[in-house]
Amino acid sequence: MAIFGKKYFKVELDRPERKDDETLWMKCKACGELVFKKRVRENNNICPKCGEYFFLTAPERIELLVDPGSFEDISRPIIAADPLQFTDEDGSAYPEKIKKAQEETGLANEIIIGQARIGGYPVILAVMDFRFIGGSMGSVMGEQICQAIRHAVKERAAFVLISATGGARMQEGILSLMQMAKTASARKMLAEAKLPFISIMTYPTTAGVEASIASLGDITLAEKGALIGFTGRRVIKQTIRQDLPEDFQTDRFAFEHGMVDNLVKREQLRDELIRVLSLFAPLLTQSPAVAIEAHKKEAIV
């Protein structure tokens, strides 16, 4: 899947990747109306009839946010291993699951990291793809996020994390839990380098990722329609045996309980990011000392 003349990090597949089915129309899951697929795509994957958000793949998300032609994939060439030799009860081994996800998405992993510009500002993006085993965090995602942070420091770029994940990758057991610590330990490098970390939570941002790197942003934005929380609704319901509030773990819920700085509509996300990045502008690309000095002078003048 080449866009802007650049390729995403992919692996060679035995079978050709699955093409989108060729139908021109789709039915909106919210309003039930038949809508023209092309119109939906042009509309940032939002239903043109009722405004319902359909999820974005990582490449679509990147396309939506970055300056055209500026994106370059900087993923480490790694893919998931099977340290536990994990087999689901249905007999499907973890490596098969990975392979299937790769075939279905055309991506090597559940996360794409890349270097880009947004409104001219240098950023390192880390974007999860929910289609790839629920965007769950295993050893690969942990390492790619650390790689992204290292690159942000090297390039003096802002770090922008876009979460779409159900949480930890159970098939990697304890090692997936350890990625919470691994990613959190890398986060400090950004603070030390005085580089901003903007965390964008989308549908869904839950469990192991929500309880680690996604909650450690300097600025935290929730996309309209996001689902944000630690424990899944179903588990909580089973535990407390009570009905849950209608708006439980919605974007609005997260905002009202002080978990995110702002709620942003998808079509405004790029502009919102540019606004935020501009406030950190002097710190991006220049060394912090130089930047702070320049900023002071500007303020005095």
Partner: peptide, 16 residues
């Protein structure tokens, strides 16, 4: 796993 824990941002507390 409860409502109060989520309302008071359990995920954020663990991350912190």
């Amino acid at each position: 796993p409860g409502v109060g824990a989520e309302e008071r941002n359990i995920g954020g507390a663990l991350a912190q």
